[in-house]
Amino acid sequence: MIEFKNVCKKYPNGTLALDDVSLTINDGEFVFIVGESGAGKSTMLKTLFREEKISSGSLTVDGYDLVKIKNRQIPHYRRKLGIVFQDFRLFPDKTVFENVAFAMRVIGEPTRSIKRRVPTILSIVGLQDKYNDFPRELSGGEQQRVALARALANNPSIIIADEPTGNVDPKMSLDIMNLLLKIQKRGKTVLVVTHEKNFVDYFQQRVITIKNGKIVDDKVGGMFDA
């Protein structure tokens, strides 16, 4: 469960990026976070990654109190999250298999377990035939699916996708969204930050709208109305 309670985030330059945000996202929910550029979406994600500390209020994710969390606990907390970026952030000199395996290797997963698990994850995202391909040999949609596979590698309970379809053609974008929905059906909590009005309206999921750092709308089956 993700719980923001009266969260404020003020940057040293005085910008109030989050202004008294309170919301609860339950386990297994699919949530779109929408809003204009500069509305506070990125800051919200950064506070969830614990890349930024909140200025006031409380923020709890999966039992971790992100205000009181100790620095040495942060890596362990982040293993609960799977993160997908608009620009994929894959390693160009690593194959599809190695890109996914990398996420497991950094948390000390044994090689045997990596060899067993990576093919399973790649088949979930439909890339079972692309093990040895390099990112440059894949389309944008396929690259994003590799990124999704990497996000799933350590079996996180929450998937956070920041504009996952921003660099993908429309048909592939639909595939990615369907994939995210499929992942949510497997019991994961999925947060998608997006500008894609069509998808938001089409998928009829919970939509949280942020404006000037405040939540201005929060509806299940809502529409894109940023």
Binding site: R72, P75, R78, F91, A103, V106, G108
Partner: peptide, 16 residues
């Protein structure tokens, strides 16, 4: 830098 950022996002410890 990017590799380090990804390492951090997937939960790599400082030592790693």
């Amino acid at each position: 830098k990017q590799e380090i950022a990804i390492m951090r996002y997937v939960g790599a410890t400082k030592w790693f």
